[in-house]
Structure formats: structure tokens, C-alpha cells
Write a protein that binds this DNA or RNA. Structure first.
Lengths: 295, 295
DNA sequence: TAAAAATACTCCATAGGTATTTTAT
DNA sequence: ATAAAATACCTATGGAGTATTTTTA
């Protein structure tokens, strides 16, 4: 038995006419006849019967037809899914991304790619914390991730794509609100909040605070939470400068003496995973055109 | 693409080891390697990737695997169903049968066939009125039917297989209960019931009653209904003598002057339909061994 | 070095083609 | 006479084989 026999059988079952079916199948009538004969022989049962000079499906052919249809449909779905990942255009790319890039870097990168490289590519975007993104990359749920750096991941390839400036955030009533820039050591005595310590950015900030003997409340996951708190308390926050913060009025962003490359965001992918041409193409494009690194 | 490639892919996806898979598939490792390569090429996507000297399914291979599995499962179900109808033994035969033979003729015929010809045959028995049986034969729902004769069915082949004696049925209190045999014309004046006129047996009986200027209530579908009525009224009934009547006590069966072959029951099948070897074998067996006709 | 997969090539089975015959309208 | 399917025969593609090389643990 082979796949063509099944396609031939399906068509013949629908038309109940060898000559007609053979035309639609782009084979000759004797070829179709032989193909069906050998299928019937292999099954040990007549799928078609003669009614005068014409043919009709038998009871058994009708039964077999149902199974063949669903088998072929299922197979074709599989082929289509596989092909939509490849093909010369129109691939599918699954992206994992931390919140801070979702509204800013990522749509720009994707739009540029669609405009300049392949407008038929479909992007599935999943949002999550860095650890979620990394897990998705390792499990191959995502093709490419955008997140912080994580150590001891030999199978992952990290490429820095942008630096986020770390700033001091206060509301307009805060005693430091007058300043445009400030040193970390001047913060001593002011209540400070920042990201949860389990996040890479929390760890990074913690490093700078410790060398300056500063304490802080490490409790937040993202800039929106931090912005909300700062709007309504007299705490100050160390946070990444992102467009999310612009939604709050009455906030003041103050430059800090933290190196511009202290907080880097990376594009990451699994070195051991197979990637489609589309994925590779997107990765290359981002590396060459969308990186925004200091110096 | 061909079916073997799919079977090969499935096995390789499960074992993730070419040499091992090729053994289980009874082909050589290079053959398997080539087969999978061409499948990957046709799909335009890598289904497996290298991990050192071993291989692993890719994300895309995993997706494709799901579809291939269900397609192959579906196909195999179809093949199995088709083969179970044929095969050298163990076929399936669908029978339609009127109630009067269900408990008597049919189980005997089937048991004899299972004992003497093919013990692996499976019989699906469906009960219905003659017209239901005929409809099932015409629609190929049934392979073989047992029922009365119906006219103007050129595509159906009827073979008489038994005669049922038509008798007068009364209860023990009936004035005629003393008699062992009686002529139809002696029934004038007694209330009579019999089968519904829409049934073939009702038509047959009606013919004999009319030639003797007798009237009757044509209202019943089967012998059990008739037996029940006769047990509890002082009507008499013209009915077929069947084992169903033995469940009633206090009933008397009286011979009538109706020819023994007035009521014939037929085996019927569709001349235009394809029949498996098993069906043909059963039909022949019944004709040769289970017929019980007068003279 | 040994185990695994890929490559190079060879061969034959068979899918599909052409020409023709058989069957039924 | 004609339309439909089956049969007979032929050809060429490609599926599977053997022998060998490449890769990597």
C-alpha cells in the first residue's frame, strides 16, 4: 500500500468513474485501474463493484473511505504545519520577551523585519519574566527570547542588544526632586525600593547598592509597579528608564552614577536547537540592525 | 512522500536512534537515513537534529509526529476493518430478520454454520418487519435478510427457505376449541383477528379469507400480540404456527385448509451488491442445509 | 578507538505509461 | 458504434541494499 493509492481511491470513491478520476489525478486510466486493483487485492476486499459499464463503491469501500479521508486530512494538516514553518517566505517565529521590551523595542524590531526582510512572517509573542523566557527557550517553546543574562547556560547563546539606563525615580514632592543627577552615596538615609531580588535586574542593582552600603526594599517585578508606588509614597526607586514610566505624571527621573552598560538586555536562543531559515534570518537581522548598545 | 517514510519517521521519532530504529524496521541504517533525509527535504524542515553522535527530534519534528501518529492510526483502523470483512476466516455478516425467525430458525442456522463451516464468523443480527429488512438490503446495511416476499424488486434475489403453517388459534373456552382441524368456510360468523394488512403475511391471509367471504380485524404485527389477545378474548385468530405461541397456556391450535406453502419465508440478498466470501459462503450453506420446504 | 550517522554507488521492484482487448450500451 | 474498464506489456524512477567515509565521544 502507498499514499498515492489512498489519494487515488479517495478521488475514485468520490467520482465513481475511472476515466474521469484518472484525468483529475493526472494519471492514465489503466494506471488508476491497476493501482485500485492492487489496493483491493491487498485489503482482500472489493472496494468497487460494476453496475453496467459504470462502477459504484461497495459497502466496504464506503467504510474504508471514511478512514482514508480522515487519515489523509490529518496527514495534510501535519504537512501544512511543517511547511508553514519553512517555505521560502511566510514562516512562523515564536518569541519570548520580558515586559520591558514588549511595547517598545520588540514592535519596532518586528515591524522593521516585516518591512525590510519578509512581510509574510508570523510572530507569536509570549510575555514573561526572564526565567520564564529562558525556560521556554530551553524547552523549545520559543525560538528566540529577549531577556536578561543568566549564568551557567552553556547551551544558550546570549547576544546583548541594548542597554537600559538605571535611574533614580522620585515623585515631585520628594526632597531630591530638584536634582537632575545624583551619586549613589548621596542616597544614604532615604527609603529606597527596587526590583525583586530574584530578577536579574534586582541582582544587578543590589550589587551597586551594596558597594555603597545602601539598603532597599527588593519587592517589585516591573516598572509599572514601581512607578505606581513612587507616585503615591515618598520612597525613591532605582529602576530602568523605560517608556512605561511616561504614563505617570508627577514623577522625576534622576541620573545616577551607574555605568550605562550596567543593565544589558540580551537576545537569546538555543544553540543545540534546530532553527528554521526564518528564525536564523530574524536573529541575524536583529543583530545587525536593531542593536542599540553604548559605544 | 510515501507511507513507509511516515512509518519510519514515527519509529525513529520514538527511538531517536537510527541504528536501533532501522533494526526494528527491518531495513538498513543507510536506507533509513536516506528515507528520512528525503522526507525532511520534501517538508523543507529538519525533523531531527544532532546532539553529539546522537539525534533528537526538533520542535518541528515533535509537531509533525502528532499528525503522523493520528493519520497512521486512522489508516490502520480502516485497513483492519476492511480486512476483518475478508480474510480466510473470521468475517463479519450483517443480517436483517423478521421477528418470527429470531428465536428459532436463525440461531439454528447460525450455530450450524459456525460449527460446520467457519467458527470465527461474527454475525450482527438486526430485527425488523419485512419492509425494514428489504430496505436494509437495498441500502446495503444488511448483507442477507430473512423475510417475506416483496414484488417488483428486480435487484433482489429471493430464495424460499421455509414454509410456515397457517393455523386457527383460539383459547380453550372458544366454541371451536374441541376441533383438531377445520375448514375456513366453517368460520363464518366467528369474530376473527389476524396480522395487519400492511404486512405480507396479512395480505396472504386476507386472500384466503376473501375467497371464503370472511371478515377479520387486521391489526397485529406479530404472533406474541395475537397470542396475548386470543388468551383473553373469545376471538379466533389466523396466524403462523411459530414457537412464540408455546409461551401461552390455554391456547388451542387448529389445522386449517390452507395450503402448506401459502406462507413462505425467504432469504434475500442484493444481486447488485458485492458480497464477501463469507457472505456467499453463508448464503450457500443456508440454501443447501437449512431449507425446510414442503415436498 | 569505537559507535553512530552520512555518503556513494548499485540494483531491482514497481508505479505509471502505451497499446490493445473486453464488456456493455 | 461507442464509452468504459481491464489486460498485456514496457520503461524508468526511486527505494532499499552494500561498501565506505565522516564525525565525535
Amino acid at each position: 500500500m502507498n499514499l498515492n493509492q489512498l489519494y487515488y481511491f479517495k478521488k475514485l470513491a468520490e467520482l465513481e468513474h475511472y476515466t474521469q478520476a484518472s484525468k483529475e489525478l493526472f494519471i492514465t486510466q489503466p494506471s488508476l485501474s491497476g493501482s485500485i486493483s492492487s489496493l483491493e487485492e491487498e485489503l482482500g476486499i472489493a472496494l468497487f463493484q460494476h453496475h453496467g459499464r459504470n462502477i459504484k463503491l461497495t459497502k466496504y469501500g464506503k467504510g474504508f473511505y471514511q478512514y482514508v479521508c480522515s487519515a489523509l486530512t490529518e496527514l495534510e494538516k501535519g504537512i501544512e504545519k511543517a511547511r508553514e514553518k519553512s517555505g521560502s517566505y511566510g514562516g512562523v517565529i515564536d518569541l519570548g520577551c520580558i515586559p520591558t521590551l514588549i511595547g517598545d523595542f520588540l514592535p519596532v524590531a518586528i515591524n522593521d523585519y516585516l518591512k525590510n526582510v519578509d512581510s509574510k512572517t508570523k510572530f507569536n509573542i509570549f510575555q514573561g519574566m526572564t526565567l520564564d523566557v529562558i525556560e521556554g527557550i530551553e524547552s523549545e517553546k520559543y525560538d528566540v527570547g529577549f531577556c536578561s543574562y543568566i549564568e551557567n547556560k552553556q547551551n544558550l547563546e546570549f547576544h546583548p542588544i541594548m542597554a537600559q539606563e538605571l535611574i533614580l525615580l522620585v515623585n515631585n514632592n520628594h526632597p531630591l526632586a530638584e536634582k537632575d543627577s545624583i551619586c549613589l552615596k548621596e542616597l544614604s538615609g532615604y527609603p529606597l525600593i527596587t526590583y525583586r531580588h530574584s530578577l536579574p535586574i534586582g541582582k544587578t542593582i543590589s550589587k551597586y547598592l551594596k558597594t555603597n552600603h545602601l539598603k532597599a526594599l527588593y519587592a517589585y517585578d516591573d516598572e509599572i509597579s514601581i512607578g505606581g508606588v513612587i507616585s503615591n509614597t515618598d520612597s525613591a526607586a532605582i529602576t530602568a528608564k523605560t517608556p512605561f514610566l511616561y504614563q505617570f505624571s508627577h514623577l522625576k527621573m534622576i541620573k545616577l552614577d551607574i555605568p550605562i552598560d550596567a543593565r544589558l538586555i540580551y537576545m537569546v536562543y538555543n544553540k543545540d536547537s534546530y532553527h528554521t531559515l526564518h528564525v536564523n534570518s530574524f536573529v541575524s537581522y536583529v543583530l545587525e540592525n536593531e542593536c542599540n548598545l553604548p559605544l
